[in-house]
Design a protein around this nucleic acid. Structure first.
Lengths: 337, 337
DNA sequence: ATGAAAGCGCTAACAG
DNA sequence: CTGTTAGCGCTTTCAT
């Protein structure tokens, strides 16, 4: 089978304790033995068994990932790139805890414990979700992505959603737009709420009091973007611009506009959020807020590592800046608008 | 801290062995004790420590996932959806092994062993990649996705790539096309090769000997699709249809055609492969081969589970059918074509 | 600087 | 049907 620490000890003519010390960088071992052991380790391709290690209370070098939406979340994939890099740098492996959330007895926290996870990346939780609080209360180091929860050993990271939308509205205002509508994302989701808040604040700042009819509530999907746009187009006084809570919604809006024979951007400007791959290939290419998903993922792991390694570190609350990618769906409002 | 098996034993007034037997469904335990133990387990929210379990040689209920190139892959996310479902059904957790492939001493197999992984899902390996062979040789149950490798405890699953392209070519032929070009995927990738083989076979079947200039080699990206199309459009006798090795490539091809002022599908038909989200939103919507990624992921886990549970089961080699999604980029060739 | 021994939480014979 | 015991591979006192 695979080599154990005992095999190495035997081959090196030392005790297992010594090998263990070498493996864990104890300074109390002589240069000579250290080198002999290390040579054997490399030669015999030895790698300590992580289960045994974590059992004796040492670090498991395992981070758990909790995704309430399941693995198929499209953003998770983009996050993964950044997560992956940071994981490698710090030597962690990532375990996806396939939750039986449906099962009444299922418990996140115990699942984490049974896996000796050192910390948890949590993504996809909604505002006020109970399980999120339990996680915080458990004391397991937790880093939320896109949910502003903090605690003794919990913190979060997110894009600057509010500021992003404020910037978007200001940009539209500068182009000359005054009737600016909003197709908001899912209520109850942190990012949806923040984006909507950004819309409200920017409108207020600019002295534009939005018509309540100009704000439609969606859920980030193309479907609600499509229907939302239909509603807006049916208004007696049509908006000249619409900011959407997601690219998917913006794509739905674009589709509705096309079907209604409304020219984009000549008669109507549309802005999305996320900069997913589809944003570049629709026609016209979508003006949208680009989130730096890779940085989000990478920093999430780094922050979590901090929480793990420094038990008394303060709760991180990190906001990552975004950038507006101006493409083809925005322009000045029509003359008679 | 968390409850251990000893706490349960104490509370139930039995030995740890008995509790263990209950936990592992031994039939030799009385109904009464079983129930008492189970009640305590649920009440104290006990969950056995997986590290301890796997250390004693029992199952670790952990599947590893190895991705050499996978993260950036646009349909990886759909694969995950299927994987997730099957994982839950069978009770596995998934550990993503963050490989230090760059490091010379890094070794996949030992990484898997150190994590007590019961089996491995391998995705993104190229034809003839050494690490893939090592994996097979190691005897660790392995299921390759999109790579036709089998072994004592290794098998694979993939879409019916060859047949899919054959069907595509036949479909174009029926529409009246004769000059059918191909923008192939990455050489050395199993799916790229299979798709190209499908093209060749179908052309031969139909008695069409393709002009070598009509076959351009790409690497699945939009970039090579774009440049490939430019090359094809520059040909003295232009093809009337082109089958692409991926949707990304097809989207690049579409872009090149648009820029060249070539009408799709009136003057040129284009077919993609994969049916990624972008396929629906480009204009015209892309005719493409739909892979059932969700089934691919789900079956992959099921097959791997088979390999794990039945050590002597034959190597699975599963091919999943595809479907042609006819949309807006295909039509009859131009009259004078 | 090194080793002997205990023990992490659990399972698997083996006795009773 | 139940309990005792040994031990999985490793780390960590505590002696030496």
């Amino acid at each position: 089978m695979t080599a154990t620490i005992r095999d190495i000890a035997k081959a090196a003519g030392v005790s297992v304790a010594t090998v263990s010390k070498v493996l864990n960088d104890y300074s109390t071992v002589s240069r000579a033995t250290r080198e002999k052991v290390l040579a054997l380790v490399s030669e015999m391709q030895f790698r300590p068994n992580e289960a045994a290690r974590s059992l004796v209370g040492r670090r498991s070098m395992t981070i758990g990932i909790l995704l309430t939406s399941g693995l198929a979340n499209p953003f998770f994939v983009h996050l993964l790139g950044g997560i992956d890099e940071a994981l490698k740098e710090r030597g962690y492996d990532l375990i996806y805890l396939a939750q039986l959330s449906a099962h009444p007895e299922y418990n996140f926290v115990h699942h984490c414990r049974s896996r000796n996870v050192e910390g948890v990346l949590a993504f996809g939780f909604q505002l006020g979700e109970l399980d999120a609080d339990k996680l915080v209360a458990s004391g397991i180091p937790t880093l939320f992505i896109d949910l502003n929860l903090t605690g003794k050993r919990a913190g979060y990271i997110s894009s600057d959603n509010k500021e992003a939308v404020q910037g978007t509205v200001r940009y539209l205002h500068e182009l000359g737009h005054r009737r600016i509508a909003c197709i908001a994302g899912l209520p109850g989701s942190y990012v949806g709420e923040r984006r909507l808040a950004g819309y409200h604040e920017a409108m207020a700042e600019l002295g534009l009091s939005p018509d309540p009819d100009c704000i439609v509530i969606g859920d980030f999907t193309q479907e609600t973007g499509y229907r939302g746009m239909q509603r807006l187009l049916a208004l007696p006084e049509r908006p000249t611009a619409v900011v959407c809570g997601s690219d998917k919604a913006a794509i739905g809006a674009l589709q509705a506009a096309r079907e209604a024979g409304v020219a984009v951007p000549a008669e109507l400007s549309i802005v999305g959020f996320d900069d997913i791959d589809e944003a570049r290939v629709v026609y016209p290419p979508l003006t949208t807020v680009r989130q730096d998903m890779s940085t989000l993922g990478r920093r999430a792991v780094e922050l979590l590592d901090g929480l793990i390694v420094e038990p008394d570190s303060p709760a991180p609350a990190v906001i990552v800046p975004t950038a507006l990618a101006v493409r083809g769906t925005t322009g000045p409002p029509p003359r008679d608008g």
